[in-house]
């Protein structure tokens, strides 16, 4: 018998009588103002929220705040004025020198400031991790209170890779001292866009 068959047969023999799945949690915490909560939590975990109402505002922000950065890439065509052209589709290692990447998120979650991003919004999977700084654009109406609502949005969508990103990369491995910028981005800006 190969290991697969052996393991499966031992499980069959040893697993207890079937118990049912629990009912879904009733009334998980809702925030009166999810966007405000999102901003507070993001601030607590080392990120910054910038409210905007147009892509011009984002471009202006990039021009003023990131003027000294050499390599700025984006998956948003609306930001083409301030970002590199023709960067897509290269070997992932070649993105090692990206200073700032600006991507879009499907939605955000207020309770933990996490943003849901799937592969097609990244261009390449490594982009949100390898850049020195990350900026994410999310629509104000797409901020949900909690993770239950979040997975309600993800539902049975199909993706090759998807990730929740909450703030900049961090570590507290040395004596519990929090340091931002472990292997991934050293900081994170979230543009919360209200198109109205």
């Amino acid at each position: 018998m190969n290991s697969r068959a052996e393991i499966l047969s031992r499980i069959k023999e040893n697993q207890p009588e079937l118990t049912s799945l629990p009912a879904e949690l009733t009334a998980p915490l809702q925030y009166a103002d999810p966007v405000a909560m999102f901003s507070t939590v993001l601030g607590n975990i080392g990120g910054t929220t910038v409210p905007v109402s147009s892509y011009e505002e984002i471009q202006d922000h990039i021009k003023t705040h990131f003027a000294d950065q050499k390599r700025i890439v984006s998956t948003l065509p609306e930001l083409s004025q301030v970002t590199e052209a023709g960067w897509e589709g290269q070997d992932p290692h070649s993105y090692e020198d990206i200073d700032i990447a600006v991507i879009r998120a499907h939605f955000g979650v207020a309770e933990n400031a996490a943003l849901w991003v799937t592969e097609e919004l990244m261009q390449q999977r490594v982009i949100p991790f390898i850049c020195q700084q990350l900026a994410v654009v999310v629509q104000r109406k797409d901020i949900y209170s909690n993770m239950h609502e979040a997975y309600g949005q993800v539902a049975d969508s199909v993706y090759g890779f998807g990730t929740f990103i909450a703030g900049p990369s961090k570590t507290a491995d040395i004596e519990q001292s929090l340091v931002l910028g472990a292997h991934g981005p050293k900081n994170m800006t979230v543009f919360i866009m209200d198109l109205n």
Binding site: L25, V41, I45, E111, N112, A113, A114, F129, N146, M147, H148, A150, Y151, V158, Y159, G160, F161, G162, T163, F164, I165, A166, G167, P168, S169, K170, A172, G184
Partner: peptide
Amino acid sequence: LSVFLRLLARSATGQPITTYSSHFN
């Protein structure tokens, strides 16, 4: 995952979630 991701990092380090929760499909 909604249940487990709410519990995991809060129990581990007191963070509301880990920075990255990556879903490899």
